[in-house]
Design a protein around this nucleic acid. Structure first.
Lengths: 341, 341
DNA sequence: ATTAGCACTCATTTATGGAGAGTGCTAACA
DNA sequence: TGTTAGCACTCTCCATAAATGAGTGCTAAT
């Protein structure tokens, strides 16, 4: 399927105009379009062809045309290709380094939402590939231990552990040393059975505590996979009439509040792209409530394959160029911030 | 302003009916109301009186009546008075004890939102009156310390500290002992200047570290006052037509996402009621976007004056009885959970 | 191959005219 | 004197109809 030069120009004009106005665009509008001196009648003929190709759609007879999902896809693919080389002047967003990952991520989504006027989300870096930096067990009282786990990138987790028998300070001190000397610098996935057995052996009679700590560690990670995601600007969807009728808006905002589905989307995007930018148009995203939206995601890196994903959700007629630029710029900044860590 | 018995009955019938249907209620509807054998004409006369008193309103000529804010207020005041003694069969909500405060609070709002079909929020217990349980400084690398702060009720905070000069393990160990022996068991507000001076003295050349730790502590607390609030069920507002037009819904959900204003509301409610249940009707709440809502709050306790607030936001015609019951039940459970801590 | 012209289609807007619900008032009644 | 039936009146809420206008597809002329 090859588009003639003129067809391409017309198609482009339709997309551009529709992105701006959000309303079906007719042949006369296009005929007035700059550097295109053709009458509306001719354009009508061309549009009929484009429609037959499935690139544009008529919402009803005697209305203008709007891009189909396939049309958007073509446009975006072309756009991305073109962008590949071109390094544009990127608008700077002010992301400041933060001590705590959580604060940083919240800031990122907030700034991004304000900049783009779309809804945004970000997933915390995937934990199981991150290296352990530090473990600290502290005695809270006779039956409780607090385990603090710090990983590369200063992701801090804490988990409370309960024991039946009494804990004594000295033992905990020895365990701390043991755990740190053995585990520090390892990625979570490197902690295998052999290592665990060895640890337990060395811990002697306290092996039960060791296994509880490791369980806790695993559990803490598991929990994160499920939950750790931040969103912002959900209400931006009200700025786009095609999304803001009660029904749709409610569903969408619900998806945002729940976050569960968002996690799977971000994870999928991360797995499939490695480190690029990905666009889901309408039903391409695996979330039903987003069938009228487009989602653009980017994966950021935190050294050695450890990565998270940031995403922007808007109407299908979102400003893809701007969004892609914003994400690229953001991605660079994040990579930078994590680099000097 | 004294209501005759009959006027009261009519007023009550109007409120009850309106709470159910959400539509203006007319004289004929009331005349069919059980144990009230009066003709519609008579009721019309009474209603005219009630309207003059400002208790009910006519949205337009020849429509039924709806309660005014003043009317709701009267109803709620009476309701609360009546409830005071009566201990009703309270529906149980399943709140499970959790290790971490955050998890617990999130669970609470979720369950509450599901139970009531309104939007819910909860503020973490106020920090500055809580007693310190434990402080732990850990060396992360040459220039960074991780401070972990645990308070009563197992609220865990961590904060990363940066230093120019090198840190050594021994010093940190000594500081840990010093901080814990001195501060454990104290409420934050008890850490006064005298104590600080004494601490610094004992720390000798490491007094700089001490003051940084204390700063961090203060800052961590400050931050909490601003942010620590959890919400759930924001999308429930779409279940009530009077709140779910684009404009209103957008504003409301925004308020929920922002949380800043919610904090001030919850704090105010806590200050003014001590430990009871409070109802804000329409503009009584200090948040403009909630002018069409009612808010019911309850303060829960966590031993010795440490308290947080939980709130429910719904349309003005919310089911106050049910909401108050739910909150009371919840309050009891929370008090119980924290008690055995 | 392009374009002007025209008939035709459909969403959107504006008027119009009940139907229904509910009121306020008056006059009759117990 | 309090209560009620009756009635005219006032609104909102629909549904239907008519006018508008944007945009198309097709045909015939250039």
């Amino acid at each position: 399927m090859q588009l003639s030069d003129r067809k391409w120009k017309i198609f482009n004009a339709i997309i551009k105009t529709y992105l701006e106005t959000g309303e079906p665009v007719g042949s006369r509008t296009i005929s007035k379009y700059a550097d295109l001196n053709i009458s509306s009648a001719t354009i009508r003929n061309e549009m009929a062809d484009l429609e037959e190709m499935g690139l544009i759609i008529q919402p009803h007879t005697s209305a203008g045309r709007i891009p189909s999902d396939k049309g958007y896809r073509l446009y975006v693919d072309y756009l991305m290709e073109e962008k590949e080389q071109e390094v544009r002047q990127q608008q700077e967003m002010l992301i400041q380094k933060q001590d705590k990952m959580e604060t940083l991520l919240k800031q990122v989504v907030r700034v991004l939402a304000n900049n783009t006027n779309y809804a945004t989300m970000i997933s915390a870096p995937r934990y199981d590939a991150t290296k352990l930096k530090f473990i600290q067990l502290s005695v809270i009282n006779e039956e409780q231990l607090l385990a603090v786990i710090v990983t590369e990138g200063n992701l801090v987790k804490n988990k409370m552990l309960h024991f039946r028998h009494e804990l004594n300070n000295e033992m905990v001190l020895r365990l701390n040393i043991l755990l740190n000397t053995t585990l520090t610098g390892l990625a979570i996935e490197q902690i295998n059975l052999a290592l665990i057995t060895k640890l337990k052996e060395e811990a002697g009679i306290h092996s039960e505590v060791v296994s509880k700590v490791l369980d806790a560690l695993a559990e803490a990670i598991q929990m994160d996979e499920d939950v750790e995601i931040y969103t912002s600007g959900a209400t931006n969807i009200f700025k786009y009439p095609e999304l803001s009728d009660s029904e749709r808006a409610s569903e969408l905002i619900n998806t945002f509040e729940d976050k569960k589905e968002l996690v799977s989307l971000l994870n999928e995007s991360m797995d499939s792209t490695g480190t690029g930018i990905q666009v889901y148009i309408g039903n391409e995203a695996p979330i039903r409530t987003m069938r009228d939206c487009s989602v653009v995601t980017a994966t950021y890196e935190l050294g050695e394959g450890v990565q998270g994903t940031v995403g922007i959700i808007g109407p299908k007629r979102m400003d893809y160029e701007k969004v892609v630029d914003s994400l690229k710029s953001l991605k660079n900044q994040l990579d930078l911030i994590f680099e000097r860590d």
